[in-house]
Design a protein around this nucleic acid. Sequence first.
DNA 1: GTCTATATTTGGATAGAC
DNA 2: GTCTATCCAAATATAGAC
Lengths: 190, 190
Amino acid sequence: MAEILDAAWSLARSNGLLSFSLRDLATKVGMQAPSLYQYFASKDDIYDAMFRQGAVECLAEVGVDAAAPDRREAFRQSARRMFDFATSDPVRAQLLFQRTIPGFEPSAESYAPAVEMVEGMRALVAAHGITDPDAMDLWTAMIGGLVAQQLSNDPGGSRWARLVDRTVDMFLAEMDPDHDEAPQRKGQTR
Amino acid sequence: MAEILDAAWSLARSNGLLSFSLRDLATKVGMQAPSLYQYFASKDDIYDAMFRQGAVECLAEVGVDAAAPDRREAFRQSARRMFDFATSDPVRAQLLFQRTIPGFEPSAESYAPAVEMVEGMRALVAAHGITDPDAMDLWTAMIGGLVAQQLSNDPGGSRWARLVDRTVDMFLAEMDPDHDEAPQRKGQTR
DNA sequence: GTCTATATTTGGATAGAC
DNA sequence: GTCTATCCAAATATAGAC
């Protein structure tokens, strides 16, 4: 079952998330297509398992410790981790964030880790005294925007990766202009 | 031919960009499927014509006059127009900006207006004395990020539309902190 | 649990008559 | 230029033997 999932990821990465077939998938794990139905009820059920797996990975890799002392560093770290997670596997990002598969909707259980991620970000924002009600929406738009540009216009490169820290600084300056001591910039350290 | 294109847009909006069939399309214009091949060489050829049409519309609706006197207003206007264009037709946005159709790549001719759009934005940036080499990349990430969030998390709403002007102000403050006189905000006028 | 065989559907595209 | 008829390919999914 884990083997089937691994093979599904592999095929999705080479053939495309929508284009891989159950026949190919079965062949890859040394089965015939109908045998897959012992493990998954449908192709969408496979997508759901993949989604869940990706969401769990996201939670594990991107989790932020809201207790970090330095605010700027905490937000930069959160942004970088999310950016790196999303851009390191375009197919996974397409499944988790782009949601372009015709009939598929993730089940509530599979979606749960994503909800937890949002809660984590909300906690980070609150822990550092940011009260702006639009903070979360601005944050998701900015980080998601960087990710999308990187994936579609410079896959594998760093054209937008270079701008992550700078974008975080813009965000913090906007949230709380008074407490924002001048960041050291030009020359993101990555 | 224009009628076929109109019908294709209509079907794409209701059935999905990938999911509409040539049979349905032909039926919609009172033909049989093979007759479509008198007008288009393949389904991808139809996508290409749709892409071109969308790109031309984008150029027409979003075109910015770089000569606008007020800088902030010029950039806000540019951002709003692009945001409104993209969010007003999700299927068109998917075709033009998301590019999620398996085999399809727009032809050079169809893509030309998009190139011209980028040039227009570059001219706007230059005309207002912005020399930061990352200005364009930051701009596309921010505006694109707002659009993507609006489309996927609040389609038809204004949760991120409200944040467009504010985001433009952040951008301008970052580009040129000295010349950036305090914007009047809280209460985007739309 | 895995297989063979096949149902079922659907799609894009072509041949050739009219 | 439009049609009927059909090809061809591919996909998900099911039935039923072993």
